[in-house]
Each structure stands twice: as C-alpha cells, then as structure tokens.
C-alpha cells in the first residue's frame, strides 16, 4: 500500500502543522490547488488506510513537565515469551508491548513494555506487577527512564520528491 503524489504533497504541506485558520483544510487546498472537499477526502482515506495514524496534537512533555516514562525490558525465556508477551500487553497500564532482538552480552532483554506514571514510584509499582506475572520465566530485567526528549516531531517526509 502506498500513497500517490498528491497525497504526498498534502502530507508534506502539513508537516509544520495545520494552518491555524478557521478552515484549515480549505487553506491547504489553496496552497496545493485542490478543493477543500478533496483535501478532506484524501486525509480521511489515508486515515482509513492507516497511512495517517491520527490527526492530533502532540504536547511537548519536556516543556510541560515530564511525567515519568520508562521502557521496562525483560529477558523472558524464548519458550515462554509467545505465551506471556500477550498477557503483559493486555495489562491496562502497559503502553506499547513487543518482542525485539537481544544483543548478547550487552543487551539480554527481548520483551519491551512501555510504562507511564505521575512519578517513578508509580512506574515501579507497575513494573512489579509485570515481574510477578512473568515469574520464573524472566531471567533479568531493567528499566530505562526517559531523562530528556531530544526530538519529537513524528515522521517527516523529505522535502524533495522521491
């Protein structure tokens, strides 16, 4: 699945942000010589196809006071991770949860689960719940707190056509 040249121009035009005018889609249309209806239809179609995850605002947590966020990482037996991974992912407080490769000996962890909280104490409580769930199938664990956000823009397209 992919996008055509007009879709791409549309995405590129919105990267710096939607125009802050009462009719932003009409304004985008004027920039790109498209009607407002076509702009809305194309954005809706890309959203339906999953090319656009969402149209939304991302707050700058670093500027606003960062709530604690940590990637909890776990070394789970290969024979158990397919069974236990979905159980961790199904915990209501777990954000993104997935299986990733190990890099031994530096990095023995294969299961990643994103945890958020108002403070580190809350994150640690959540981490303890996961540890109990994994039990003896887990041979080691760590948590990596985010100490500074250096860049958070969402994906950006190159300025030139591919």
């Amino acid at each position: 699945m992919s996008i055509d040249a007009i879709d791409r121009r549309l995405l590129a035009a919105t990267q710096a942000g939607l125009p802050l005018t009462p009719e932003p889609y009409a304004e985008l249309g004027r920039w790109l010589d498209l009607g407002e209806e076509e702009v809305i239809d194309r954005l809706a179609s890309m959203q339906a196809r999953g090319v656009i995850r969402r149209i939304a605002l991302a707050p700058n947590h670093d500027a606003l006071g960062l709530p604690a966020n940590g990637v909890s990482v776990w070394d789970v037996l290969d024979s158990e991770v397919e069974r236990l991974g979905p159980q961790v992912g199904a915990l209501a407080f777990v954000g993104h949860c997935c299986l990733r490769p190990r890099f031994l000996p530096l990095w023995p962890y294969n299961l990643f689960a994103m945890l958020h909280g108002a403070g580190r104490e809350e994150v640690e409580e959540k981490r303890a719940v996961i540890a109990r769930l994994l039990g003896p199938a887990c041979r080691g664990q760590d948590i990596l707190y985010s100490t500074r956000i250096l860049k958070k823009t969402g994906m950006r397209l190159k300025k030139t056509e591919p």
Binding site: I3, Q15, G17, L18, L43, M46, I55, A56, L57, K152
Partner: peptide, 23 residues
C-alpha cells in the same frame, strides 16, 4: 493553540504518519 505553539508547548499538530503503511 497559536499561543501554545509559540511558547513551545506543542511539538506537532497535524497528521501523524505511519511509515510502514506508506510502504
């Protein structure tokens, strides 16, 4: 929203793309 953007309280406002879905 304009004021929030100006003071750096917003990192992005608009469509968020999914690279995999774009090929």
């Amino acid at each position: 929203i304009a004021a929030l953007r100006e003071m750096g309280a917003i990192t992005r406002f608009g469509p968020f793309f999914d690279a995999a879905a774009m090929g």
